[in-house]
Simulated scan of single mutants.
Amino acid sequence: MDQKQYNVTGMTCEHCAAAIREEVSEVPGVSEVVVDLAADTVIVHGTDLDDERLRAAIVDAGYGIADSIAA
């Protein structure tokens, strides 16, 4: 299983977290999306994760990405 982590800007509440989970969950290969509001991070678990599509999903949800760390 692959994992990607993103530092996301603009998240302030559970509504933000839910919006990101919903968008990112639609990307093929995603099995789990963990949003940590306190740390401003989104961790995505799955197989054959497409970094470009994951980034696009976060932006489509209305948030920015400071950087990413592939784990």
Rank of each mutant, 00 (worst) to 15 (best):
M1Y: 12
M1W: 10
D2Y: 10
Q3L: 13
Q3R: 14
Q3Y: 13
K4M: 15
Q5M: 14
Q5V: 15
Y6E: 09
Y6L: 15
Y6A: 03
N7D: 10
V8K: 03
V8Q: 03
T9I: 00
T9S: 11
G10A: 01
G10M: 02
G10V: 02
G10S: 02
C13D: 07
C13A: 07
C13I: 03
C13G: 09
E14W: 03
E14F: 09
E14P: 02
E14Y: 06
E14H: 10
H15S: 14
H15C: 05
C16A: 08
C16V: 00
A17C: 04
A17P: 03
A18G: 09
A19M: 06
A19P: 02
I20P: 01
I20Y: 07
I20Q: 02
E23P: 01
V24A: 08
V24L: 12
V24T: 08
V24W: 12
S25I: 12
S25N: 15
E26I: 09
V27F: 13
P28W: 14
P28I: 12
G29E: 13
G29K: 10
G29P: 07
G29M: 12
S31K: 15
S31F: 07
S31D: 15
S31R: 15
S31N: 15
E32C: 09
E32I: 02
V33W: 08
V33I: 09
V33H: 10
V33N: 09
V33E: 14
V33C: 11
V35R: 04
V35Q: 02
D36V: 05
D36S: 13
D36E: 13
L37H: 06
A38I: 03
A38R: 11
A38T: 11
A39R: 11
A39P: 01
A39Q: 11
D40S: 11
D40I: 00
D40V: 00
T41V: 01
T41L: 12
T41G: 03
T41M: 08
V42Y: 08
V42E: 09
I43G: 03
I43K: 13
I43A: 15
H45C: 06
H45M: 13
G46R: 04
G46C: 06
T47V: 14
T47S: 14
T47Y: 09
D48M: 07
D48E: 15
L49F: 12
L49Y: 11
D50K: 05
D50I: 04
D50R: 04
D51R: 04
E52K: 00
E52M: 00
E52F: 00
R53L: 11
R53Q: 14
R53S: 12
L54D: 03
L54F: 09
L54E: 05
R55T: 08
A56V: 02
A57P: 02
A57V: 07
I58W: 05
V59T: 14
V59F: 02
V59E: 15
V59M: 02
D60G: 05
D60V: 04
D60F: 05
D60W: 06
A61F: 07
A61E: 07
G62V: 06
G62Y: 08
G62T: 10
Y63A: 01
Y63E: 00
G64V: 01
I65Q: 01
I65A: 03
A66E: 08
A66Q: 08
S68M: 12
I69M: 13
A70Q: 11
A70K: 13
A71R: 10
A71K: 12
